[in-house]
Design a protein around this nucleic acid. Sequence first.
DNA 1: TGATAACATTGATATAAGTCAATGAAAATC
DNA 2: GATTTTCATTGACTTATATCAATGTTATCA
Lengths: 189, 189
Amino acid sequence: MISVLREHILNRVGDNVDGLETVLAHFLVETFQKNEILQEEGTVCKYVYFIASGCLQHFIYTPDAEEVTNEILIEHTWYADIQSFSNQTPTKENIRALEETVVCKITLEHFQKMMVTVPQFPIVYSRILEEIVQQSKHRVENFLSLDAKERFKWLQQHRPDLLKRVSNKVIASYLGIREETLSRLKHKI
Amino acid sequence: MISVLREHILNRVGDNVDGLETVLAHFLVETFQKNEILQEEGTVCKYVYFIASGCLQHFIYTPDAEEVTNEILIEHTWYADIQSFSNQTPTKENIRALEETVVCKITLEHFQKMMVTVPQFPIVYSRILEEIVQQSKHRVENFLSLDAKERFKWLQQHRPDLLKRVSNKVIASYLGIREETLSRLKHKI
DNA sequence: TGATAACATTGATATAAGTCAATGAAAATC
DNA sequence: GATTTTCATTGACTTATATCAATGTTATCA
């Protein structure tokens, strides 16, 4: 599974990455079963995760205990709760496996060591953060400019895979609408 | 105005930054009047901007030519259209000065040169991107979990300065609601 | 200073999406 | 394979927010 990560990094910085094997050696591989919780609100986030295969739901609980889905993360993407991870403070984010999922994870200590010892590491990290910023921007734009039906259509066009592998419940919560509304939308388009 | 930027960077990486003055020397200072456009949809984004003083509106146009405010950026924050800037493709983002604004800006060539020649540069850049990711995350969470009134209250609590210096029109478009709705909310809280 | 434009408020009405409740369909579990 | 649980659909009704239109208020500028 580390080979998936190697591939991912090489795609981002070209062939010649000094210290890549050193970096990879610091990642741990772990498998989670469907519905298993990787991270729970109130705990301190210990790792940065790369998803080698599978699918994760990143969600928070509202004051009235409803799940709100911040992100749906699939294979070959990253998850980090930067705030909790960097400051070692309790997180408000929950992570659940929506399928059997294999991750490569790295601890804060190793991450920080890599940041200062492997010159290309911060550059790769910047690339990854740039991609996250980009996606986030689109997501905000969608909330600002599209209604429920249009957001759903956007998802159909840009991430059709998600609609196939994720339950309507999670999709609805990702779109910021009710399951009932999603069900109606699907038949009215 | 470069001193504001120097201060900002030192706050993020501690006192001893090799090559800081080299980096600063590559920034250009420019002043924009209120309502001046810094970047227009369709053009290629040439710079990364640091706002030394003032306030910028980052917005897009919907298909029916309505302004949608992605971000309101104040002094001591950064703006980059990473997609357009990195790939040299036409942007969809517009930037307008909401007040007289002084920016420090750096070109793609200098930015890339810094990334590979100044070892601390990618680390500082990562920090800045991390902050942007963090804010973006909150913004998405707000859209997912709060209604119009609650989003407005959030703004009152977390960015009260904005309500004082920015028009209701822009605030409403930032909150994803109509001016009329904002006006009603303000009197019903 | 007065004229014009931009911004803000308020009212009446329409519409999208939420809520509550019931039922049907599909998965998970024993 | 039957049973329980979770997930998805549908209906009737409510509520939040948008829309359209009118009017008041504050900036801008010749």
